Amino acid sequence: MTDEGAAPGMLRPGGRTARVRTAVLRAAEDALIECGFDGVDLAEIARRAEVGKTTVYRRWRTPQVLVADLLVDMAEQSVPRTETGSLDGDLRANARLVVRTLTDERQGVLFKAVIAAATTDQRTAEALHRFYATRIDEWSPCVDQAVERGEAPEGTDASEVVRAVSAPLYYRFLVSGDPLNETVADESAHAAACATRAGAYVRRSAR
């Protein structure tokens, strides 16, 4: 994103401005974890971050803009993909990372708060969609490389494969409440790998 036309709070400055952004985003994260989206009050965020209220209001304007910027930062700070040299290994690494994130005492609560906020606020929903799109783009090359190695059919939609790995995990996290652990992660990755090799995710145009 360039500075010109960028949303308030989403510039990428250095120096003191960067330190202020880091402090404010950390405070917003704490507020989400403790109180949910309703706890993201800009004046309270300024107090937590120990910065001036004017600075926070000028740069972020609304809680929705602040949460959107937090999601941008989360995407930027996320762990990069693991390349093991095999489709099964890469998908397993992806699934285990998702499970570690969702079961983390801090990150799991944060994700639930952000997802809940996204159900009622369009700006937050759009930011959440961008976050997941960023993560899918990060991991999709693993599938493309599997196609090149002959482990998956030509025309496989890499993005759909990555979604297939994490979808059952998020279902457990948000809906069923069933356990999330490495065994579940490995099962999800194995199922996605088998379906991929069988051609389940080959684009219609390639069939």
Rank of each mutant, 00 (worst) to 15 (best):
residue 58 R to Y: 09
residue 59 R to G: 12
residue 60 W to I: 02
residue 60 W to A: 03
residue 61 R to V: 10
residue 61 R to A: 12
residue 62 T to Q: 02
residue 62 T to H: 07
residue 63 P to R: 03
residue 64 Q to L: 09
residue 65 V to K: 08
residue 66 L to V: 05
residue 68 A to N: 02
residue 69 D to T: 10
residue 70 L to F: 02
residue 70 L to M: 08
residue 71 L to C: 02
residue 71 L to F: 06
residue 72 V to M: 10
residue 72 V to D: 14
residue 76 E to W: 09
residue 77 Q to R: 14
residue 79 V to I: 14
residue 80 P to Q: 10
residue 80 P to D: 07
residue 80 P to G: 09
residue 81 R to S: 07
residue 82 T to P: 05
residue 82 T to D: 10
residue 83 E to S: 14
residue 83 E to A: 14
residue 84 T to H: 09
residue 85 G to H: 06
residue 86 S to A: 13
residue 88 D to L: 03
residue 88 D to G: 06
residue 88 D to R: 08
residue 89 G to F: 05
residue 91 L to I: 07
residue 91 L to S: 02
residue 91 L to Q: 03
residue 94 N to H: 15
residue 95 A to G: 01
residue 96 R to V: 14
residue 99 V to L: 05
residue 100 R to V: 10
residue 102 L to T: 07
residue 104 D to M: 11
residue 105 E to K: 14
residue 105 E to P: 11
residue 107 Q to Y: 09
residue 107 Q to V: 12
residue 108 G to E: 05
residue 109 V to F: 08
residue 111 F to V: 05
residue 111 F to Y: 13
residue 112 K to N: 14
residue 113 A to D: 06
residue 116 A to Y: 13
residue 117 A to P: 00
residue 118 A to I: 00
residue 119 T to C: 15
residue 120 T to V: 15
residue 123 R to M: 14
residue 123 R to P: 00
residue 124 T to P: 02
residue 125 A to S: 10
residue 125 A to V: 10
residue 126 E to K: 12
residue 127 A to P: 03
residue 128 L to M: 15
residue 128 L to R: 07
residue 128 L to G: 03
residue 129 H to C: 15
residue 129 H to M: 15
residue 131 F to C: 04
residue 133 A to R: 15
residue 134 T to W: 09
residue 135 R to A: 03
residue 135 R to G: 08
residue 135 R to E: 08
residue 136 I to N: 05
residue 138 E to D: 13
residue 139 W to G: 00
residue 139 W to R: 07
residue 140 S to Y: 06
residue 143 V to K: 02
residue 144 D to T: 14
residue 146 A to G: 03
residue 146 A to H: 01
residue 146 A to L: 02
residue 147 V to D: 06
residue 148 E to S: 11
residue 149 R to P: 01
residue 151 E to H: 09
residue 155 G to M: 07
residue 159 S to D: 15
residue 160 E to D: 15
residue 161 V to D: 00
residue 162 V to C: 05
residue 162 V to Q: 01
residue 164 A to G: 00
residue 164 A to I: 04
residue 165 V to E: 01
residue 167 A to G: 15
residue 169 L to V: 00
residue 170 Y to G: 11
residue 171 Y to D: 15
residue 173 F to I: 00
residue 173 F to P: 04
residue 175 V to N: 13
residue 176 S to G: 12
